[in-house]
Amino acid sequence: GKMTGIVKWFNADKGFGFITPDDGSKDVFVHFSAIQNDGYKSLDEGQKVSFTIESGAKGPAAGNVTSL
């Protein structure tokens, strides 16, 4: 299901970062391709987001990332 969290950091040049889930679980990798907006796909440190957990090739990653 949907989770919420805070963006820990995001490197716009490399197109990835990490989200710290509100439930205290392990930080989740986020790739820019998972960001659900029409414009420039980037996130800001400290931004609140909702997301799902998808299993990627390198382990769990955030999917369906939407800013709240």
Rank of each mutant, 00 (worst) to 15 (best):
G1E: 07
G1N: 10
G1I: 11
K2E: 08
K2P: 03
M3P: 03
M3D: 05
M3S: 12
M3R: 14
T4K: 14
G5I: 00
G5P: 00
I6G: 03
I6D: 05
V7P: 01
K8Y: 01
K8I: 00
K8L: 03
K8P: 01
K8G: 03
W9S: 09
W9E: 08
F10S: 03
F10T: 03
F10W: 09
F10H: 02
N11C: 10
N11D: 08
N11L: 06
A12W: 07
A12Q: 12
D13G: 15
D13R: 15
D13Y: 14
D13I: 13
K14F: 07
K14Q: 10
K14R: 15
K14C: 06
K14S: 07
K14M: 10
K14I: 07
K14P: 02
G15S: 03
G15M: 03
G15Y: 02
F16G: 04
F16Y: 15
F16E: 10
F16A: 04
F16P: 01
G17A: 04
G17Q: 01
G17T: 00
G17H: 00
F18L: 07
F18Y: 08
F18N: 02
F18W: 10
I19Y: 00
I19H: 00
I19A: 01
T20C: 14
T20P: 00
P21G: 01
P21W: 00
D22T: 09
D22N: 08
D22V: 06
D23R: 08
D23L: 07
G24P: 03
G24T: 05
G24M: 07
G24F: 04
G24E: 05
G24I: 02
S25W: 03
S25H: 10
S25M: 06
S25V: 06
K26M: 09
K26S: 11
K26N: 11
K26H: 11
D27L: 03
D27I: 02
V28N: 02
V28P: 01
V28A: 04
F29C: 05
F29S: 05
F29P: 09
V30F: 11
V30N: 02
V30D: 02
V30E: 01
V30I: 05
H31Y: 03
H31D: 05
H31R: 05
F32C: 10
F32Y: 14
S33W: 03
S33T: 13
S33I: 02
S33K: 10
S33A: 06
A34M: 04
A34P: 02
A34D: 08
A34F: 01
A34Q: 13
I35W: 06
I35Q: 04
I35D: 04
I35H: 02
Q36H: 11
Q36T: 14
N37R: 14
N37P: 09
N37G: 15
D38M: 09
D38C: 13
G39M: 09
G39A: 09
G39L: 09
Y40G: 12
Y40I: 11
K41Y: 05
S42N: 13
S42A: 12
S42V: 12
S42T: 14
L43G: 01
D44W: 12
D44T: 14
E45F: 09
E45S: 15
E45V: 12
G46S: 04
G46N: 07
G46T: 03
G46L: 04
G46V: 00
G46Y: 04
G46D: 05
Q47D: 15
Q47N: 06
Q47E: 15
Q47K: 06
K48D: 04
V49K: 02
V49F: 00
V49Y: 01
S50D: 09
S50W: 06
S50E: 10
S50R: 09
F51G: 01
T52A: 08
T52F: 09
I53V: 14
I53A: 07
I53T: 08
E54H: 14
E54Q: 13
E54W: 10
S55R: 13
S55E: 12
S55Y: 14
S55V: 12
G56H: 10
G56I: 03
G56L: 08
A57E: 14
A57V: 14
A57P: 15
K58I: 07
K58W: 05
K58G: 09
G59H: 05
G59C: 05
G59A: 05
G59E: 06
G59T: 05
P60Y: 07
P60Q: 11
P60N: 08
P60D: 07
P60V: 11
P60M: 10
A61D: 03
A61P: 02
A62Y: 02
A62F: 01
A62V: 03
A62D: 01
A62M: 01
A62C: 06
G63I: 13
G63S: 12
G63A: 14
G63K: 14
V65M: 01
V65I: 04
V65N: 01
V65A: 02
V65W: 00
T66Q: 14
S67T: 15
S67M: 14
L68Q: 09
